[in-house]
């Protein structure tokens, strides 16, 4: 058993704010797949545990004009099984397929994954590459901000007595996307490194790399190389050089050495390019 707390299951967003105002030491829980492990390890000992699973306003996937809106409480299984996501935002489908395992996907939510802000989170690199925005709801209403502003450090997101309401992606700007990760075992593991690539409708590329920095990492020089028309084998050498010079993953990582991570993110970038169909089989190594 965990250390004692009071369990609350509000049915409206207003009730959540009332509870948050009542007690400074409150903790929101959605799927609980990360939080319950933290409670067990006593990394978190809240007075109030506020279970928001019943808030229908935070659920579901819908398209409004040129945007797809994913409610924060949408489970990973729901993302994986959604046709709109698979057709328009393939990287998010791929991330759902790699995520945890079947049982975890039934409980874990995309919002939980984002607010947890782990450096190798499945929904870090693809959402950054897709230029996602988040909708945050507070007592004074709803505001919208870019994900890289919201998710600003390891385990840190901009929430101040507020809730992440949804994640919004423009589907006109993003033409094709791909996500790959490397993990020690396929069945149930976290990413050693991960990479996402987006080909935009203006033929420019955006790439992001995970676990090599405190938050998903982008280097504009790499994106410029990817966006050049005469992209070839030598381009990867240049990309590798840029990665080697610009990131220094911490050497205390439990999963891989900095050198290995730097090599692997570039290797995953090749996989992403193959998915997007921009790379012939002749480019390898």
């Amino acid at each position: 058993m965990f250390s004692p707390f009071e369990y609350k299951r509000p049915e409206t967003i207003e009730e959540v704010f009332e509870l948050l105002n009542q007690n400074d030491n409150s903790q929101i829980v959605a799927g609980g797949t990360d939080l319950l492990v933290k409670l067990r390890e006593a990394e978190s000992s809240p007075d109030f545990l506020i279970d928001i699973k019943e808030l229908d306003e935070l659920k579901g996937i819908e398209q409004e004009n040129n945007e797809i809106k994913i409610g924060a409480l949408t489970t990973i299984t729901e993302i994986k099984e959604n046709k709109l996501i698979k057709d328009k935002l393939y990287a998010l489908y791929q991330a759902a397929s790699e995520f945890g395992c079947y049982e975890i996907r039934n409980r874990a939510t995309i919002g939980g994954n984002v607010v947890h802000a782990s450096p190798g989170a499945e929904y870090g690199v693809p959402l950054f590459a897709l230029e996602a925005e988040v909708e945050v709801v507070g007592q004074n209403g709803i505001k919208r901000l870019p994900i890289e502003e919201f998710w600003y450090d390891v385990g840190r997101v901009k929430l101040d007595n507020e809730l992440l309401k949804s994640i919004i992606i423009n589907i006109d700007k993003n033409e094709k996307s791909s996500y790959h990760r490397l993990s020690r075992v396929e069945g149930m593991d976290l990413a050693v490194v991960n990479t996402a690539l987006v080909k935009r409708s203006d033929n420019k590329y955006r790439s992001y790399f995970g676990t090599v920095a405190r938050t998903p990492y982008q280097n504009k020089k790499i994106d410029a190389i990817l966006s050049k028309e005469n992209f070839n084998k030598k381009s990867f050498k240049k990309i590798q050089d840029i990665i080697n010079e610009s990131v220094s993953p911490r050497s205390s990582s439990l999963r891989a050495s900095p050198e290995y991570k730097k090599r692997m993110v570039v290797s995953l970038l090749k996989k992403c390019l193959r998915d997007i169909g921009e790379l012939g089989d002749d480019i390898d190594g």
Binding site: V37, E103, R107
Partner: peptide, 24 residues
Amino acid sequence: GECGACTVLLNDKPVRSCIVLAHE
């Protein structure tokens, strides 16, 4: 929640009962 030994069905879906609160 990593090994699957505690799996039960909750409303027909398999879940890991070690990371589900009884109140849920």
